[in-house]
Design a protein around this nucleic acid. Structure first.
Lengths: 157, 157
DNA sequence: GACTTCCTACTCGGATACTGGCTGTCCGAGTTCTGAGGG
DNA sequence: CCCTCAGAACTCGGACAGCCAGTATCCGAGTAGGAAGTC
């Protein structure tokens, strides 16, 4: 099991966007994080489709958050990029083979699927409890103000 | 993000093994679940390497649980087959690019990595709370005794 | 000087190749049971 | 009747191809800003 690497990029981009006041182009975000511009563009498109960011075309265009960073959870970003379906998919093994369970016995989900679904739920709830605003506050609280100003100035330039 | 399909097979096999009294060959487990024998053998090898099952070779050999089903957690099986490392891997994006954080500022993990690690921990704890014995008890409690007997007899034959 | 027009440059968006890991398969090494043969 | 031994069948274990999702990339469509020209 491996989560898409684009999730990390998307989260970093959201944190950066939460501090910016003007639209930030994808190319600038890519250079800021030193990652592939083309591939990062794909992740930003996913964020755009999910309605987390809005894109502005043309000169001085770029990406902006559609709502306050405190209103965007980490889970929103993860699901936008990595998909919302559970990592575990029950293939209904119990209905196969010589001892296949009859359909009338399968009204409730397989116990295994239930356990995996519960774990998946716990994972998602944990991610839902944290917002991009929380992440930004953490970064702001542990970084010298002059460094933050330099970064914002670099983004503007 | 997608979990290996072998995890589901491994869990089903552990439940079956918890009810068997004699070693069960991989081929029989595969036929019981109607899955590829060769591929299931691979998953059973992983369980064997993790020390969850013990293999017996030769005539009337097969696999047996090494300890009581109540002593084997679902997490044990998942980690044996899917690996124990976290699904999220921090690539230390903050240390790259023109605004790279200096090493002395990276004594604590990146906030993003911390959030993902916490979610991963919640997921694992949820899986650790359930044992194979719990799963077996669920199956036994919701299946007619005669069906259970037929299944055990089929395994023996 | 102000307005209109056009043009350029910049932006995103979707369509297109490539790669690593999961999926699926195979054959060889080792062990246990069985049966025959001899004492 | 018991023991020994050889054979055969069955088991696991690791090594070998195939396929799909994720990775990485590119070029075209569309738009905002700016400069030039005109009134």
């Amino acid at each position: 099991m491996k989560i898409s690497g684009g999730v990390e990029w998307g989260l970093h981009c959201c944190v950066v966007l939460s501090g910016a006041t003007e639209p930030v182009p994808a190319a600038k975000l890519a250079e800021f994080h030193d990652v592939s511009p083309s591939y990062l563009a794909k992740q930003l498109q996913l964020l755009s489709r999910a309605g987390l960011v809005r894109s502005a075309q043309g000169h001085s265009g770029g990406y902006v958050l559609t709502r306050s960073a405190a209103e965007i959870t980490v889970l929103d970003v993860v699901e936008a990029i990595d998909g919302a379906e559970s990592a575990f998919r029950c293939t209904e093994v119990r209905r196969r083979g010589p001892m296949a369970a009859p359909p009338e016995r399968c009204t409730t989900p397989c116990p295994i699927a239930r356990v995996m679904a519960a774990a998946d739920h716990a994972w998602r709830e944990s991610l839902r409890a944290v917002t991009i605003g929380d992440l930004t506050a953490d970064v702001v609280g542990t970084t010298p103000p002059e460094t933050l100003d330099r970064a914002l100035a670099w983004l503007r330039a």
